[in-house]
Design a protein around this nucleic acid. Sequence first.
DNA 1: GCGACAG
DNA 2: ATCTTGTCGC
Length: 239
Amino acid sequence: MTSAIDPRYELPRDWPTTEAEATAVQERLRGSVRAEGGAVPAPGGGAGAVVGVDVAYDDERGVVAAAAVALDARTLAVVGEATAVGRVTFPYVPGLLAFREIPAVLDALGALDRRGHRPDVVVCDGYGLAHPRRFGLASHLGVLTGLPTIGVAKNPFTFRHAPPGPRRGDWAPLLDGDEEVGRALRTRDGVKPVFVSVGHRVTLDEACAYTLHLARDYRQPETTRRADALCRRALADAV
DNA sequence: GCGACAG
DNA sequence: ATCTTGTCGC
């Protein structure tokens, strides 16, 4: 049993408009994050769809485009794609990225669902529990949809870490003070690591194993690369 | 008060 | 995120 209930792709009615409201939402929902494992099929093993999401912006025109790309979890072949275009509704504020990205992401995931694709896990471009209030984009998306999610970021944000070993698979704890909030994970020999954290319904070990599997050919997970390319295309076509 | 700060 | 050319390298 992977998912007990159907995922939900509707934006909550109380979606915030101000920074103060947004922070309050994070404080209210953070307790709903589950960091237990077993909900996600083994990365290289059984069948399953891993979905990558990403967002691109044209702030001049106030346009946002999101993409959701489904890959075969074993072969990493693209099995489905969907996009959504909308208006920018929230500025970029460190710690509040979710409120800028999630509305368009939910639309893209909803469109992907209508094309018959049910994610077993969603990979986000950003953080999950590695967040000032332990409720980054990946965790927020997981709690809203009910889906297992993983956060993979390209920068260490405000966190600290020792340099991981030089080889693919080497990692070092990502620390907020003494607390391990994620990992700096080397996905390619001698290349800058990525920063992995739990989103929802996965363990940190599972999140790292999935990231390593998805980053088979490049530094970033194949999910993120495909979604990034697709949302840029969607934005260009929309403008 | 100042700087840093996922995308 | 986005602004942006060529360029070095596999």
